[in-house]
Amino acid sequence: MTDFRFDLRRGALITAVLALLSSVFLVLPASADTEPFDDCPQGQFCLYDGSGGTGTRLDVAEGGKDEDHPGTILSVQNNTRMWGCVYTADRYGGSLQTVKPGNDDEYVTDGVRWTVASYKLVPTRALCFTGYERCENGKACTFAERNGRGAMTVHVPAVDPATQNLGNSYGTEVAPKSVWNRTAKHLCFYLRPDYTGTWTEGTKTYGAYVVLRGDSITVPASLAGAFRSHELVNGTSECQ
C-alpha cells in the first residue's frame, strides 16, 4: 500500500509539471514579435518610411500612382494583384525597381539608401518601363527620358506664319528623348528652333525626323535631346 500511494503522488506531480509546461507553450505565440510587413492590408501597396516594413505606413490602392512623392520610402509590401513600379527620380524617371504581386522590397542595402521619388501600380511588369500612358488622346507629347519616362511636355502648337503649319519652337528645357504623337497629323522634328537644320548618317543627309500619327518612339541616341522645334503636317512631304 505504501508503494502504491507513493506512485500516485509522483504521478500527480508529473501531471502538474506537464500542465504548467503546456500553459507556457500556449502563451508563447501570442507574445512573439509581429513579422515584418504583416500589418499591410490585402489589396494595398504599402510604403514604409523605415526599413523592413517599419515606421509610418502609407497604403496605396490598386492603380495608384505618385509622380513626385515628397516623403521617405525605405521599404514596401505589395499586397495587390498589380506590379509595383518604383523609381529613383520623379515623373517615373531614373533607375527602376519592380515589385511582384505578393512580394516586398527593401531600399536600404548595407546602410546605403536607394532614393524613391515616384511610383505607380500597373497590370503588367512591362508597363513599369514606359510612361507613355500619361499623354492624352489628341495631344503631341515629348519626354525627357527614353520610353516615355521622365518629365513630359504637352505641346499646344501655334500656326507658323510662313508655312501655316502648326508648330512649336523650344530650347534645351524640352530636349526630347522620346515622343508620342496622339494627334491626327504627322510630326516633323528639326534640329533648330526655326524649323530648319540637317544631319548626315552615312551618305544621306536628312532635314526632318518624322513621327507618324499615332506612333510612339524613342529618339535614336545620335539625336536624343537635339530637337529644337517641330511641326504638325498632313503629309510628310510638307516637312521643311
Rank of each mutant, 00 (worst) to 15 (best):
A89N: 12
F227W: 13
P193Y: 00
S222D: 13
E238L: 11
L47Y: 05
D33W: 07
E35R: 13
L20W: 06
T203W: 03
C135R: 11
A144P: 02
C141P: 03
C141G: 04
D3K: 13
H155N: 04
P193F: 01
R57W: 00
G235Q: 14
V156P: 06
T200S: 04
G225D: 10
D49T: 12
L18Y: 08
E145P: 00
H230R: 00
V99M: 15
R125F: 04
H155P: 02
N78R: 04
V233A: 07
N181I: 14
G93L: 05
T98A: 08
F143W: 02
L26Q: 11
A16K: 07
T2D: 11
F189M: 14
T15K: 11
S118N: 09
G138T: 13
H230L: 02
S178G: 11
K139T: 06
G55A: 05
G93T: 07
S23W: 05
K120F: 03
G214T: 04
G202C: 12
Y87K: 09
F25I: 03
G225F: 09
F227N: 08
K177Q: 13
N168P: 00
P36W: 12
N165Y: 14
A184Y: 01
A126I: 09
V159Q: 14
T115M: 06
Y87W: 15
L13W: 12
T34Y: 06
S169Y: 04
M1R: 14
G131Q: 02
D160F: 05
N103C: 05
A221E: 15
R57D: 02
G202P: 13
P41W: 11
D39V: 09
E145D: 13
S229W: 02
L28I: 15
T56Q: 13
F189Q: 10
G148M: 00
T124Y: 01
R9I: 15
V159H: 06
T115W: 07
E145R: 04
L47W: 05
R81M: 06
L223E: 09
K120E: 03
D38A: 10
P36R: 09
N78K: 05
D104V: 03
S178F: 11
K65D: 08
G148S: 01
Q42P: 05
G53S: 08
V219I: 15
V233H: 09
D59T: 13
C128H: 06
D59N: 15
R192W: 06
T56W: 02
